[in-house]
Design a binder for these strands. Structure first.
Lengths: 152, 152
DNA sequence: ATTAATGCAAACGGTTTGCACTACT
DNA sequence: AGTAGTGCAAACCGTTTGCATTAAT
């Protein structure tokens, strides 16, 4: 017997959730939700736009960005900024995590909160500053690029 | 007797340094260097532009940004991205440090490397990832804004 | 004389806006 | 019918670029 987990995010329900809040379900939003359902981790706004356009070339930036705003207000997304300064959306309810972004190759990987807990707690204790772990991006050079640099 | 420390950055010498590298000293660059000399910590590119314009309204964006590029190449500046995604220049040779940026009020304060050393070393050990501490911005809510939120 | 740097003006890229129109409820 | 959402087109903002001109060496 195979144990199948629930899909991490119940994106199919979000559409209904919208309506129950007096907002509206539209084909455009359904498409955006579909794209998000097929997305893991983090994406930029323009990436979402592009993926929507692959499926429906008519997709408009304003609609996408406005919908992302709504979804963030409802708590389905969170955004932060990557090392290049672009808006980066985090698809929830994945565990909140920080990012490690290589400035050489641009690759971005996740760090679990446990790995940064000490830091976070230290800052919260000493500064009274509440850290948004999901908004934390640590830039630098990844192992692969470091090796490549040594080899050359 | 008063002990006066050397100015942290020898900005007055940078102009000469430029020339000794075959680059050129110009009044525009001198102005930018003056502005930088009067700057502590971090500034965005557009802030530098604005400050230059206060002194010389003729200042042109391209000149400023190009000069900042040059200065960064020479190692006098470093840039990262704030929580709002804008380019943030760090004036050196201040000690390299990370930033704490409040998403409510926008205020940004510095964290010394010592405070993040454990984190940094942990990541470097476990991931082989070289962290650029000077590029690290931790977002969240500062003590003042947290209090304000509680009071209301 | 050489060539780096400037200033202009235009383009960029991602994102946001105003507004008339459409379509969900 | 009422109002949320759409699409368009234009604006936005910080930043970047090409190119002819200027000026530092």
């Amino acid at each position: 017997m195979t144990i199948t987990r629930q899909p991490i995010a119940a994106w199919s329900e979000v559409h209904d959730e919208l309506r129950s809040r007096g907002l509206r379900g539209t084909p455009q939003r359904r498409l955006i939700l579909d794209v998000l359902a097929a997305t893991r981790g983090h994406v930029t706004g323009s990436e979402i736009l592009e993926r929507c356009r692959q499926r429906d070339p008519e997709t408009t930036p304003s609609t996408v960005y406005r919908t992302l705003d709504v979804l963030e207000e409802l708590g389905y997304l969170q955004h932060s900024h990557g090392a290049d300064g672009r808006e980066e959306y985090h698809v929830l309810p994945e565990t909140e995590h920080a990012h490690l972004q290589c400035e050489q190759c641009g690759h971005s990987s996740e760090i679990q909160p446990a790995e940064v807990r000490e830091l976070v707690q230290g800052i919260e204790r000493s500064r009274g500053f509440t850290v948004h772990v999901g908004h934390l991006t640590i830039a630098g050079q990844c192992a692969a690029c470091t090796e490549a640099a040594i080899d050359s």
